[in-house]
Design a protein around this nucleic acid. Structure first.
Length: 480
RNA sequence: GCCAGGGUAGCUCAAUGGUGGAGCACAGCAUUCAUAACGCUGCGGUUGUGGGUUCGAUCCCCACCCCUGGUACCA
């Protein structure tokens, strides 16, 4: 990580449907990193980008089905995505939509630069196309002639005259870059997958002519396909959102400050595009490469894939309404592994809520507050606390589950210590110093959970600021 | 088939070449400051299977099985 600034992006979500709890997992992880870095580097030195990917045939079709214009359609889904993220207090600095005006310009500018570097040519492409994936497949990718992600959709054989990107030209560059930069792909184990793919990298079509809902391909000095109305392949325009987000064309100062991105976090399904296509495009456009591609695993719900066809989709708001944003954040951060697939369930969420938040943190806060209130304790103002080393270490290693495990130990330690001191039997100085000790511990916990549970941290800090401390409503009422 | 990761208590996950750990769940004890909360104790595992190396392996080696992800051939 750069020492002076931090720029993190999430994947931008495709607008075929509102995001679900699995997508939210990634946003929460990104949010923890953004919040942590704001504490360390200062608010102005962190930029957190998220948003929606809105072009492409699938969106166009969905709009048609809904009987509204593509733009109306994508705005609607985008808004609802934003609401989902807001419900979890995802602290993005910009929510980009690829239909934003500045983004169109950026995508076209990058195209022109790549073209200027002689990396775009026209060609004919015949392929087996899955509209669900917006991608072409080889026969070998298909099972019984169907794409494994969209077994209900027909695979179409399509011939198009398209623009191609000279991806293969960057083969050696990509392989070297990945090998040399050990932080480029995290977790490291996924490197091999990319290196293997890179060996056989082929040029790819980066425009489409069979639909119009996309960023128009700018005029090429070298002439182009017969159809002048080519639009960009969604991946080409979508990736450039990371540049748009920090003002690539519109705000040079902002861009100079934040680019290159420190972390692109994305699902394992998008790794190829981010680890291989994006760096090639950037290299061609003569722009610095991002530092780390952080790959998150998927969430399964009750042992099943989360999917529309299974009808088991949970939206963040479904759980936030019942348990609160911090409880959902806590559960997802504490009982999953960021880089592996994890299994979640509402039952386990409830269990974690009662055991760790209601009986643990929430009860401890009530306990100490009441002791202070009853004894009419007065406190000196507290000097500023820093995030503790064990927490910081684990955040830097993306081990959020472990970090929250450390918090859990701190809570147990404080409870044990109170039981030992028995402050309800003490008076005078002994009482005062015993309670001060516990308050200090609670304040440290509040500081340490700030990136993870921002609302809770704030409430605890406010309650224990002093000089007088009084009891308040339970932070996490028990669920029966 | 090949590559990578994993298989440890009911669940989630740690650990180490030398008598298997934590949290949750469950049971008991104790306690009352607290959200019938906290604490303590207990229950609970031939550490995927079979071999090997070693005085000794969960940890090293070999083979196999299973799970997850990636990928080739057939084209």
């Amino acid at each position: 990580m750069d020492k002076n600034k931090f720029y993190i992006t999430t994947a931008i979500d495709y607008v075929n449907d509102t995001i679900h709890i699995g997508h939210a997992f990634q946003k929460i992880a990104a949010d923890v990193l953004a919040r942590y870095n704001r504490i360390i580097l200062g608010k102005d030195n962190v930029f957190f980008l998220t948003g929606t990917d809105e072009y492409g045939q699938k969106a166009e079709k969905a709009a048609k089905t809904a009987g509204i214009s593509p733009l109306e359609f994508v705005r609607k889904v985008s808004l609802s995505d934003r609401q989902q993220q807001d419900s979890l207090n995802i602290s993005y600095d910009r929510f980009i939509e690829t239909t934003d005006k500045d983004h169109t310009k950026v995508a076209q500018e990058i195209w022109k630069r790549v073209d200027k570097n002689d990396d775009i040519y026209t060609g004919e492409y015949t392929g087996l196309y899955c509209e669900g994936c917006e991608a072409y497949y080889d026969d070998s990718d298909l099972k019984n002639g169907k794409c494994s992600f969209h077994p209900n959709l027909k695979i179409k054989k399509i011939t198009e005259e398209n623009y191609f990107f000279k991806w293969s030209k960057y083969k050696d560059f990509l392989i070297n870059h990945i090998k040399k930069n050990k932080d480029f792909i995290f977790p490291h184990e996924r490197e091999n997958e990319m290196l293997e793919f890179a060996k056989n990298i082929k040029d790819i079509p980066i425009s489409r002519s069979n639909f119009t809902w996309g960023v128009p391909v700018p005029a090429s000095p070298q002439g182009g396909p017969n159809d002048p109305k080519q639009v960009m392949y969604v991946w080409f325009d979508a990736l450039t959102n990371y540049l748009t987000g920090v003002g690539f064309l519109e705000d040079k100062k902002l861009f100079a400050k934040f680019w290159p991105a420190d972390i692109h976090i994305l699902g394992k399904d998008n790794l190829r595009w981010h680890a291989l296509l994006w760096p090639a495009i950037l290299k061609s456009a003569e722009i610095e490469l991002p530092k780390t591609i952080l790959v998150n695993g998927f969430l399964n719900l009750n042992g099943q894939k989360i999917s529309k066809s299974l009808g088991n989709i949970i939206r963040p708001t479904d759980w936030v309404k019942k348990y609160g944003a911090d409880a959902v954040r806590y559960y997802l951060l504490r009982y999953t592994n960021l880089t592996n697939d994890s299994d979640i369930s509402e039952e386990k969420l409830k269990q974690a809520y009662n055991a760790d938040l209601a009986n643990g943190l929430g009860n401890l806060v009530s306990r100490v507050a009441k002791l202070c209130e009853t004894n009419d304790l007065s406190l000196e103002p507290q000097s500023k606390l820093k995030i503790s080393d064990p927490i910081e270490k684990r955040i830097k290693e993306f081990r959020f589950n472990d970090a929250l495990g450390v918090i859990q130990s701190a809570i147990t330690l404080t409870n044990t210590s109170i039981n030992e001191d028995e402050p309800w039997k003490l008076k005078g100085n002994k009482l005062q110093s015993s309670l001060e000790k516990q308050i200090l511990r609670l304040r440290q916990i509040a500081v340490d959970i700030k990136p993870f549970l921002p609302q809770t941290a704030e409430k605890i800090e406010a309650q224990f600021k002093g000089p007088k401390i009084i009891s308040a409503k339970p932070l996490f009422p028990r669920i029966t």
